[in-house]
Design a protein around this nucleic acid. Structure first.
Lengths: 340, 340
DNA sequence: CTGAAAGCGCTTACAG
DNA sequence: CTGAAAGCGCTTACAG
């Protein structure tokens, strides 16, 4: 359909009813599906809809249904951070993919990292949206988990601690991913395997450390080589220097993010330490950073677009009044490249 | 209490009218401002609004006004590209800043680079939004300029060629920025000043080249040193090699993007050519790339957030039925750092 | 299976 | 300056 065709004066349900020779109620039933309408009536109504180019008026529909048919995308992050992060890009892509097939529109609500403004909260709770998707690295903010008490909300990533009422969220299996990464290092014969962990107050940081520890313990290896970074490249470099100072015999490193892995590798290279033969490195994320350096990074892939899609579908199910599990954990996958 | 019950409990205009002892018409006038209402009546209505926590119902308002009170943010770019580009981040931030003070909500419409889907077009022209903001590097796409014929639309960046009807757009003064950059190189005593230009089919590419040429001609210098890149770092590096091969006596380079400048500088460094004493380099954008390398880049700052804000304000004025200039050109500013 | 009718919660001429 | 009334374009019990 071209723009020119869509431009005609908007026909109403009333016009369709007149054209099809039925009542407005019947047209409404056909448009919304489900209800019992005789097949030939359905056909003639659809023909009228088609020939008139009828599109339901959202405002009228919302008013009558007492639902806005809108979903908020709440982003409690600095704008530049949000837009600079491919992880968010993938999640949003997944969300829009799922929503394109629905009757819902996505309303963008940027917020500061400290949470949505009073204005935003008024908006969100003022009946302007039927539900919200919160995408952030700070999903566990109090002001946001509270939102879940008044409005159907789905978060990306588990909350730091269980909330009351329990939140709905989609997460990736960070622990299993980290475990697979560490298992891979072990299978390579590495015995002194360090972790450059994430922050201790962020669920992905915590869970990835858990997985690393689990793998080492199963292999009866020690879990003493742990340093925390902030998920950034600079943080990874600093952490690598600390690890090397603590124990020069390290032969494997699992970094809880690709960026930290990349920082660690630059330190190893500067010291002339061979990757992977002397020290093997595995990252996490499978982001662009994994393949943009001179050494292709072995890393844990997380299905971010799928996570976004799953979040949207979960929310829609919730809005339909269906029974929905509070958490949905998606699998990760180890991608073996050159660094380990 | 369920969500539905909560929503039913939301106070209506009717309730406010009853509490204030006036008619619905009067409450409506107070809420929407403008109309003549006696001050003491205004006060008592506002008191009732306050005490009941009244928030107007968007759907009802939209239906009665026959306006959706929604604005689409149309993004005809690959998602990863859009989210990976700080330029877009700034524009979106400006847009949301302006819209936060308005009654409009921003509806996200991702589209492919080739333009919005049939579904999207149906949505945009189906009365679901009152106007659209198109943010992209491909604003001049035919399908999108035609959108402007049926719906108020504001673009970022001028169209490649004048459109019919003329488009509304906000642009930065690319030519003046490039001219200032080149003037700066000239003032430094440089005489063999090359340009690593942008693509010839993109307005910013064209306009920045125009500014470079203008400055050189005014200084009676030759404009023969021109090579085109694709705005990327790799493109800048390739272009720099070509320039050096063509004329080793080059002493100044204006690159039409920071990324290209950064690629050019890496080539200069590899060849042991000193920056800025042997070859001075100026970029364009003042993006993160300008300050993330080892040499701080002298570059042209463009006010992207302001551009977004201006786009939103322009559209709102248009929707108010005000007379609006078709183009708004924002000034750029040279930021002198270390590379020139 | 289908239709008549009563809303959903606002805005806005039209009177007064 | 204010109110009564007629919509805006849908949905949804309620009858039949």
């Amino acid at each position: 359909m071209t723009i020119d065709q869509a431009r005609r004066a908007a026909p109403t349900l009333e016009a369709v009813a007149a054209a099809a020779g039925v009542s407005r109620s019947t047209v409404s039933r056909v448009v919304n599906g489900g209800a019992q309408v005789k097949p030939d009536v359905v056909a003639s109504v659809n023909a009228a809809i088609e020939s008139l180019g009828y599109i339901p008026n959202r405002a009228a529909r919302s008013l009558a249904r007492r639902r806005s048919m809108a979903i908020a995308l709440v982003v409690p992050e600095e704008t530049t951070r949000f837009f600079g992060d491919p992880y968010f890009a993938e999640i949003v892509r997944g969300i829009t993919t799922a929503l394109d097939d629905s009757e819902y529109v996505l309303v963008l609500q940027l917020a500061s990292a400290s949470g949505p403004s009073a204005n935003s909260i008024r908006y969100l709770l003022g009946g302007n949206v039927d539900g919200a998707l919160v995408v952030s690295h700070h999903s566990s903010d109090t002001s946001l988990t509270r939102l879940g008490a008044s409005l159907p909300v789905v978060f990306n990533g588990r909350p730091l601690a269980p909330t009351d009422p329990p939140s709905y969220f989609v997460d990736v299996d960070n622990a299993a991913g980290a475990e697979a990464a560490t298992d891979h290092l072990i299978s390579l014969g590495r015995r002194r395997i360090a972790i450059i962990a994430g922050p201790e107050d962020m669920p992905p940081g915590i869970d990835r450390t858990t997985g690393w520890r689990r793998a080492l313990q199963r292999a009866s290896l020690t879990t003493d080589l742990i340093v925390h970074g902030d998920f950034s490249q600079a943080g990874g470099a600093t952490a690598m220097r600390q690890l090397l100072a603590a124990d020069p015999s390290i032969d494997g490193v699992f970094a809880a993010s690709d960026l930290m892995a990349s920082g660690a590798m630059s330190v190893l290279r500067d010291r002339g330490i061979g990757i992977p033969h002397e020290v093997a490195v595995v990252g996490f994320d499978d982001s662009r950073a994994a393949t943009s350096g001179s050494i292709q990074l072995t890393t844990v892939h997380q299905p971010s677009a799928l996570a976004g899609e799953t979040m949207a579908k979960m929310l829609i199910a919730l809005l339909r009044g269906e029974q929905v599990e509070h958490e949905r954990i998606l699998p990760t996958r180890l991608v073996v490249r050159d660094s380990a």
